[in-house]
Amino acid sequence: MTLDPRLQQIADAQPYPLVFATISGAHLYGFPSPDSDFDLRGAHVLPLPKVVGLTLSDETVEDSRVIDGLEMDIVSHDVRKFFGLLLKKNGYVLEQVLSPLVVRTSAAHEELRAIADDCVTRHHAHHYLGFSETQWKLWQKESPRRIKPLLYVYRVLLTGIWLMRTGEVQANVTVLNREFRLPQIDDLVARKTAGAEQQTIEDQDMAVHERAYGSLSSQLEEARDSSKLRERPSEATFAQLDDLLVRLRTSSGKGT
């Protein structure tokens, strides 16, 4: 997709230098509605005076408001926090750093993308299983039930299965469904992208989604158990992130 040029201006206006800024959320997942907001995610570099004192502020910067006519949801972590999350079984940061919807990049971002591939482990399945279970339970309690959270459940499960099978991060549910071929997903995406953010579904469709949720959850567990992915990031991966962090910090917080 072609990104709105205003997003670059919004990235330029962030309070700290950005190593990268990418788009996450519905635009990344392949089902933005005409009124969807833009989820801008990134990693910034706090200057030395901010990190050597007794207190640490702005480790995470958040901003949700309309900027230049765009409804924005902005979250950026300082590189030390972001790298720490990357070393854990956190699928969100993997998807952010590897997102193809790039608003701001840098040489450090390209280096980080290569390192991120080595951070993928079989235990990332727990992230996707946990998130899908939470979203599923919340969605079952909704009245009326919305399409958006249901698509999040499908997207998370398919992303997790694909990651366990291939080691590749793919967050776009439409791309994933070329492999899984679940007809209800194409229908849900078509309705979500053509309508408003709060589109709902009919109760008579519940049985289809319940069966699919159970089947995909089992497939993700099986893919995790049979996965050839590593158990944890290697010491070399840790050392690469540590070296990159030191270089970013000692270069006066320049992300480019």
Rank of each mutant, 00 (worst) to 15 (best):
E133I: 13
A107H: 05
T250D: 08
L70K: 08
F180R: 14
V169K: 01
F38M: 12
A239F: 14
G160N: 05
D12T: 11
E59R: 12
D186Q: 07
D63V: 08
R165W: 11
L245Q: 13
V66K: 13
P32V: 02
F83W: 03
M72G: 01
K254T: 14
L157S: 07
L70I: 04
L220P: 02
H77F: 10
Q184F: 07
I10L: 06
I147F: 00
V51W: 08
L28C: 03
R145G: 09
D58I: 09
G30T: 03
S215I: 09
H44L: 06
R6N: 01
H27I: 02
V93T: 00
R178D: 11
P49D: 04
S132I: 09
K81A: 04
T250V: 12
M206A: 15
W162D: 04
C119Y: 04
F238W: 14
V175D: 08
A107S: 13
H127V: 14
D58F: 07
P17V: 03
V51E: 03
Q198D: 14
A171L: 03
L3Y: 06
A125M: 07
K148D: 03
L248M: 12
Q198R: 15
L158W: 05
I74Y: 03
E95L: 08
S218G: 06
S24N: 10
D203K: 10
A11I: 09
T166W: 09
G91W: 01
K141F: 10
G255N: 11
D39C: 05
V173A: 03
K137R: 15
Q96P: 02
I23M: 00
R232W: 12
W162H: 15
D37L: 06
H27R: 15
